[in-house]
Design a protein around this nucleic acid. Sequence first.
DNA 1: ATCGCTGCAAACGGTTTGCAGGACA
DNA 2: TGTCCTGCAAACCGTTTGCAGCGAT
Lengths: 165, 165
Amino acid sequence: MTELVTPRPPLGCAAVMGGLFRAALQEHHLPVTHQREAVARILFESGRHLSADEVSDRLSLINENVGKATVYRTLRLLVRVGLATEHDFDEGFKRYETRVGPAHHDHMICTACGAVVEFHRDELDRVQTEVAGATGFRVLTRQLKLYGLCADCDAGSGQALRQVI
Amino acid sequence: MTELVTPRPPLGCAAVMGGLFRAALQEHHLPVTHQREAVARILFESGRHLSADEVSDRLSLINENVGKATVYRTLRLLVRVGLATEHDFDEGFKRYETRVGPAHHDHMICTACGAVVEFHRDELDRVQTEVAGATGFRVLTRQLKLYGLCADCDAGSGQALRQVI
DNA sequence: ATCGCTGCAAACGGTTTGCAGGACA
DNA sequence: TGTCCTGCAAACCGTTTGCAGCGAT
């Protein structure tokens, strides 16, 4: 159930925090607070899909005491201003990921071990545009998740199905 | 926030309940109970995306008193045996939809009014296969959701952004 | 007869919210 | 200085679970 995504390089984290982050908030007339910077930095530095809890834990580790409510509020905020994306990998909670630029990618999730692999296909952007045109929607973003078994888990499958209470 | 999906025709609901449903359960050595039939029938008859609460309400309406716990357990079960699909349209709860045959379809969701439109593209099946081959995954299912504004909502947009507590 | 399901109600856990005090612009 | 944010803790709410009894096979 742990995160098995290959960590991306920091992606110019310093630059983002120095400029893009402040700019995005100011553009929406939102105050730049110490807590918001801290939460954003954690997310940008990790380059992974973090849950609110994980963000909170990592903040504690560096003695940044940010209330959990603020963590939730800030993550929601980052999504709204377009700096982060929310994901639901069916774990019972949400995960958040930074979103820098329009380079969209999608996810493949192993339903057995929880491994998450990112991938990108150009065709998907085209499909998105076509469907939008056909239905009159203005598509802002997409979430494509392929569920299945990773190579490792595919080997040892075939257990009995029971309701398990 | 209401369901705006065009209701599909009952899709041979009677036939499904008469055979496919029992067969699917028996195949997994799962008892066919009155409650399970009732929940499945509600889902198949509606042909929509229903929440556990909605299923429960509809059961009450026809004086089928099924405990809410059983509704949740049964919906989970239907997903496991492949008769239903679980969806998360970011409403804070899950929705369930019957799944008859391999005819997959995807969803486009209006983030303003909650309208859900279904669509289908053959290319997506191909992409799914290709990505699976490239990564060694055995893909079992997918969830593609396009988020944006429907034609109606696209007109009246552009309000100020605030954290709104 | 056996094993598993059902119902109730309580527990659970992620997320949200009310409110008093503090911080940004 | 005014407005918005923060922190705490309690509330929320969809969902899960323990357990005694019933039901399907």
